[in-house]
Simulated scan of single mutants.
Amino acid sequence: MRFRSTRPEMSIDPAPAVPDTMRAVVFDAPGAADALRVAEIAVPTPVLSEVLIRVVAAGINPIDAKTRAGRGMSGAIDAWPSVLGLDVSGVVVKAPFDAHPFPVGTEVYGMAAVPRTPGGYAEYAVVPTLSLARKPAALSYVEAAGVPVAALTAWGLVVETALAHQGQRILVHAGSGGVGHFAVQFAAYFGAHVIATGSPHNLDWLRELGAAEVVDYTSTRFEDVVADVDVVIDLIGNVADDTGTRSLEVLRPGGLLIEVPTGAWPGFREAASARGIRSTDYKTIPDGAALATIGRLIDSGAVRVFIDRVFDLDEAAAAHTELERGHTRGKIVLHVSDD
């Protein structure tokens, strides 16, 4: 007996031609923003489960600037020049096999494995399959490039670590920044009572994102008006006005301090423990499945991304300078190539 397959025949589109070289923003050694320059380098080759993406846009993150300056992930750079850029959005041009979950032509966004491989500040980038998701239909490539690192960090902080739920009181410092504006939205979505600190011109916006209370840090000491908090998501640390140490004053006994910036408060564990408060640091996990869930929330309208400024690829140095000035609302993104 012959059995006829019920699976539809797969139509395979020819893969687009990929050049041998590409334009990329590189740096030859740690330095200031002007260490970034545009160069012509080889297009990276995907291996195993990696896909090759034609990059349309790349997000700019604080870890990029720290790495460029010789901190962050700079210790893992083993070859120069190096290409930054964890956040990428674009189109798959090479996949490991025809029936791959992200076949050629798929619009995707995700996290490159910088500095193990060249990042998104380039016309092409290789990205592991498990660090990718389909681009939300509601977003442009530029908007999508502002999502992965910031949203995955916020998801890990709010959903996986704080276990946000109805009735919980969560304080988010720097609520209007890249990670912060996602953290406020996720915490509110899962029913928490969100308190966010921000500058005067961001307070109304933070309320729109879901914050039940807002504190103008330029005029008010948050510990004077906030108390009995279950979780503090500290995106500042002690680099500015001892924000981390002061956060211990508003946490209830047994509450949780999540200290995010690396090295911003080396003694936070001991200080929290002395007050009977739990604490942890956090590092972003490039989880494509979580990113797909976030994409569904974005497409439903429950979560949004805010892009503060867009720079062209050859303006990467200016983008870093803008980022390092601080007070960015949402994200800064590089436009790398046409859609």
Rank of each mutant, 00 (worst) to 15 (best):
V158G: 03
S140I: 09
E143W: 08
R169W: 03
L171H: 00
A164P: 08
V179H: 06
L139Q: 09
A145V: 02
V179F: 02
V158A: 05
G156W: 00
L139W: 10
H181N: 09
P148K: 10
F182C: 08
A138V: 11
L152N: 01
F182L: 10
G146W: 05
A137K: 15
A164N: 06
P148T: 12
Y141N: 13
A188S: 15
G180Y: 07
A188G: 14
A145T: 02
E160K: 11
L171G: 03
V158T: 12
A151S: 15
A188F: 13
T161W: 00
H181T: 01
H173T: 11
Q185C: 14
H173M: 03
V147N: 02
Q166F: 13
Q185F: 13
A144W: 01
A144K: 09
T161A: 03
S176K: 01
A150H: 04
A174C: 05
G177L: 08
V149A: 12
V147A: 06
S176E: 00
G178E: 07
W155T: 09
F190C: 13
F186S: 08
F186M: 09
G175I: 07
Y189L: 15
E160I: 00
A137M: 14
A138T: 12
L139E: 02
V172I: 14
G177H: 05
V159T: 11
G156I: 04
S140E: 07
V159H: 05
Q168D: 09
G178K: 11
Y189I: 12
V158I: 13
I170H: 08
H165E: 14
A162N: 05
E143D: 14
A164F: 08
G146C: 10
G180C: 12
A138E: 09
G175V: 08
G167E: 02
V159R: 11
H173S: 03
A144H: 04
A151W: 06
A154I: 11
V158N: 05
F182H: 11
A183C: 11
G167N: 01
E160S: 12
S140N: 07
G146T: 06
R169V: 13
H165V: 08
V142M: 03
A187C: 14
E143Y: 07
A151E: 06
A187W: 15
A145E: 04
V158F: 07
L163G: 02
S140K: 08
V179T: 13
G156N: 07
Y189N: 14
V158S: 03
V158P: 05
H173P: 00
P148S: 11
V179L: 04
A144F: 02
R169T: 13
G156V: 09
H173R: 01
A137Q: 15
H173K: 01
V158W: 06
Q185R: 15
H173E: 06
L157V: 10
A174W: 00
A154C: 12
T153E: 05
Q166A: 15
A151P: 10
G178L: 11
E160H: 05
Q185W: 13
A183W: 11
A154D: 10
H181L: 01
R169F: 07
L163N: 09
A144P: 04
Y141P: 06
L171C: 03
A162R: 04
L163M: 04
V184D: 00
T153C: 07
W155V: 11
G175Y: 06
A174V: 01
L152W: 04
L171Q: 01
I170T: 04
G177S: 13
Q168M: 14
Q168R: 04
T153Q: 09
G167K: 03
A187Q: 12
G177A: 09
L171N: 01
A174Y: 00
